[in-house]
Design a binder for these strands. Sequence first.
DNA 1: TATTGTTTCTGAACCGGTTCAGTGTGCTGT
DNA 2: ACAGCACACTGAACCGGTTCAGAAACAATA
Lengths: 346, 346
Amino acid sequence: MVPTFKFYLTGFMNININDVAKLSNVSKATVSAVINNKVGVSEETREKVQGIIRKFNYRPSQVARSLSIKKTKTIGIVIKEIDNPYFARIMRGVFDICSNEGYTVLLGSSELSVSKEVKSLETLVSQRVDGLLVSGLHEESSDSAFISNLIRSNYPLVMLGGIKNFNTNVVTVNNVDAAYNAVTFLLKNGHKKIGYFSGPTNSLQNDDRKEGYRRAFADNDISFQKKYIYDVGSYLGEGYQHGKEIFSSSADKPTAVFCYNDLVAIGLINSLLDLQIRVPEDVAVVGFDDIDFAKYAKTPLTTIHNPAYEVGVAAAELLIKQINQKEKPLTEKVVLDTYLIKRNSA
Amino acid sequence: MVPTFKFYLTGFMNININDVAKLSNVSKATVSAVINNKVGVSEETREKVQGIIRKFNYRPSQVARSLSIKKTKTIGIVIKEIDNPYFARIMRGVFDICSNEGYTVLLGSSELSVSKEVKSLETLVSQRVDGLLVSGLHEESSDSAFISNLIRSNYPLVMLGGIKNFNTNVVTVNNVDAAYNAVTFLLKNGHKKIGYFSGPTNSLQNDDRKEGYRRAFADNDISFQKKYIYDVGSYLGEGYQHGKEIFSSSADKPTAVFCYNDLVAIGLINSLLDLQIRVPEDVAVVGFDDIDFAKYAKTPLTTIHNPAYEVGVAAAELLIKQINQKEKPLTEKVVLDTYLIKRNSA
DNA sequence: TATTGTTTCTGAACCGGTTCAGTGTGCTGT
DNA sequence: ACAGCACACTGAACCGGTTCAGAAACAATA
């Protein structure tokens, strides 16, 4: 009658609410009430049940619970470049909030192909995550019927850095202004030929930064030259490689470069130093993000401080708010501030 | 009769297997067969059902499925220092394998308190992850009844870097040998006073590296001095700060330092340069991990190449193997090789 | 004593899938 | 014409929780 054998037979975690109910001589409804600290259970019964729970190491199945209450207490996150320190820091912010609020985090694909990216979102939805945090969706992905369905149907969703063509919740920083400030700073320092090491072409963040770069020229009555915009990418190696190519050729070269992010900037600086070009005397470099490593780079990096941790926090908070919202949620946009940190590279 | 209204009413993803069954005029068992590509369904029926599925954007609930089949196709991962590039790289390896094998990844706590660490594991178990990947458990956590239960009961579990007092599956690198090689290299270069910037004291990896450091002295008939072992930590800032303290004091200082990891080494190098101490002429520095930044550091870092990505891959593969193993699994130990990369810092 | 009220507890339905024994249909061979 | 057999399909139980109407037990009130 008492299913003790089951425990000893199959080991840890193989006892369920029915077993607990039988062992405690109460109904499973009562056990459920005890588990969830509901009122209407006598102290005596509560203790009896809790004793059994402890004794048999019972741990309620979150999956059964999820099925029943139609909430999984889980959010899905799709981040490209998880090994980019900037995103790692965001993750940390997300994670801290989720932890506090009792959510666990399901990780979706990182930078795979577009088709895999959509698959990954589909998987997360199949897992019935309560909400989705998405960073850097491929542009093409936004064409997928799946994604537009998702957004149209008010599935709780927060984008990091924004996405074209869709009106969703967004957490981002003032990329345009930040870039504007960085480039203005260079202009004020007398630079006229300022390059932009551009990030991924399908990134909205990159578009905004490029826009800020453009505006700085406009507002300072300096005609900006398209040839100084280089498609580079977002990795250390890419910054290094493009730096080497551009600055070892004899063509007309910029005297300063604003970079999409710190990784690229650090790569660039290394390529310049390898080419015996001095930083900042010959070429000034400004990065973006202010990752930890920025101040330890060969030439400590002048860069835009990007509050990655806070972005993660804000995104998680907004998402959880959207999840808890009963009504059709309004789409919100949270924009955090950045500031220029002057170090040695410019 | 036809519950179409439901779809239009509640939006995306609110249709279930019963609805699909009704809309297709078949039983839910048949729908289930179609979803899972089982045989015994006529081509005609299959297409009819698939048509409905597409039309209504039906996506089976993984949570209901999990409850039924008692597998979640999910693994849990608990990693401290997710913003450490070394671990980020591991994550990537884990992720790639899991992706391929159809597993999603649930993230557990990062470096919180001991009690939270155990809580985090408990949460993952409640979520019924099929297996657990754990890195850098606090030493105290291993005392918890929960953890020993977990291990005793053969819950599929793989540790990264090992854990004291328990016999579990482990994926790690040959830390002792690697440290031995690094220190031997320094000894061969004529250094006698070699320091060790030690990592977290509760880390088995750190113990092994320290052991390798010790043995190198023993095998070279040089008496090693305990005073050259400094408790530092695992972060950039910690390396910098301790470097500053140690090398600005007038006491007897080492002429070379082997560091627990690259982050610490880079921090140390920066502190040395700030103190006008030349690297490697005055003090040689060797790191551990070979993170991307290592070669872009102020003094390109001589370090132990640690195959982080491969560690992640091996860990995920081992875990999935354990999950699929019907019998009581044997505990396995996978040890990957490292090698010394000579750059400029030593 | 009968009635009402409170508190504690329970039975059964439900969440959305999977599974499998068994039903029904059509085709084969004799 | 009928046994025998595939094949396609279904009904119902099951996974492990939550929920809630109502039963049972007991106390208080009229």
